[in-house]
């Protein structure tokens, strides 16, 4: 039964990704101008364009082209970017452009995850342990403020404090690629700090809400009536039942990190994947935007899938779909 339920979710995930790829393909093929024009650039004549289009398989109808694009994507061929394409020269290969950027983004989000998940869960637990107390009110109010202001404001306030007033850290995170050890950490510190603040606020709120929700269920009431001390109720009765929902919360927030990364990489000029995509949007480099969007959406869908599976595994009732 468990296997079936998990299989069902994986299938839904794959279908979702296919739909996402269709949406992205349609969205980006609306634009006038195609790869043939990009490759030929100034040297385009109607004859050479037509010849190249046939060579690239662009004379096929849209659904065939979509399948071809999808096939390339699945075999790791992300296509050619407009960047660097001039008179007669073919643009840069996207996979070459993406690889180092993806590493940078993964490094950043990995650091954020390592720091924020344990910290945020502790704080969320703390807040839910004493609801209505002063510490809970402080935590609730500050997290509400953090999630309701723009991400870039959080980034700017941190820059104001740590880079301008105290002068401890650089205000941009430029990396040439040969930084080692301390330099690397220094460059990463500000973006990490910003994302940790934003993501932690989300996790804290959701952890607190989840635990309080479970605390209002009948079996906890029973434990209270039995006279079990509050700490023991949380640690022994409710914590195990919150693991599923909390893994869910964490996966959702890691997925949400994608949006935050876009802003934070821009503020700190951090050379990650999101920054590459924004540059692609600004120069209307569609193959590049397609590839980046697919990577981000795939990450998102996979994370949501993990969240789903965590809740299935932790809650046997979800194993039997109605």
């Amino acid at each position: 039964m468990l296997f079936q339920a998990v299989f069902r979710r994986v299938l839904i995930g794959i279908v979702t990704l296919l739909v996402v790829s269709i949406i992205i393909f349609i969205g980006t093929s609306l634009l006038p101008g195609d790869v043939a024009e990009i490759i030929l650039g100034q040297m385009a004549t109607p004859e050479s364009l037509a010849a190249l289009r046939i060579k690239l398989g662009m004379d096929h109808p849209p659904h065939i082209r979509y399948l071809m694009w999808l096939g390339d994507l699945l075999t790791g061929d992300l296509g050619m970017s407009k960047a660097g394409s001039g008179a007669g020269t073919i643009g840069t290969e996207i996979s070459v452009m993406i690889a180092p950027r993806l590493m940078n983004t993964l490094r950043l989000s990995g650091m954020v995850a390592i720091i924020s998940i344990p910290m945020a869960m502790m704080l969320g637990l703390l807040a839910s342990m004493y609801p209505g107390s002063r510490i809970d009110r402080i935590i609730t109010f500050s997290t509400l403020s953090i999630i309701s202001v723009p991400d870039f404001l959080v980034a700017m306030i941190l820059v104001m404090i740590f880079a301008v007033q105290l002068g401890w850290l650089p205000s941009i995170a430029y990396m040439s690629g040969n930084e080692t050890g301390w330099q690397l950490i220094r460059a990463l510190l500000m973006p990490t700090l910003t994302l940790v603040t934003i993501v932690s606020a989300q996790i804290i709120r959701m952890t607190r809400a989840t635990i309080l929700n479970i605390m209002s269920s009948p079996y906890i009431e029973m434990a209270i009536l039995k006279g079990v001390p509050r700490k023991r109720i949380i640690l022994r009765h409710s914590l195990l039942n919150t693991i599923g929902p909390i893994v869910n919360v964490i996966a959702l927030n890691m997925a949400w990190l994608i949006g935050g990364v876009v802003i934070v990489e821009t503020v700190f000029a951090y050379p990650g994947l999101a920054k590459l995509m924004i540059d692609g949007v600004q120069t209307r480099d569609l193959p590049l935007v397609q590839a980046c969007a697919m990577i981000f959406c795939a990450t998102y869908v996979v994370l949501i899938l993990i969240a789903d599976m965590a809740s299935i595994i932790s809650n046997p009732r979800l194993r039997h779909p109605k």
Partner: peptide, 20 residues
């Protein structure tokens, strides 16, 4: 609706703006 919801809003926005 679910298919559309599974795309992060900011990604959706970026793709649309890149296109149109």
């Amino acid at each position: 609706n679910d298919a559309f919801l599974s795309i992060p809003t900011i990604m959706m926005g970026l793709v649309v703006i890149a296109a149109v």
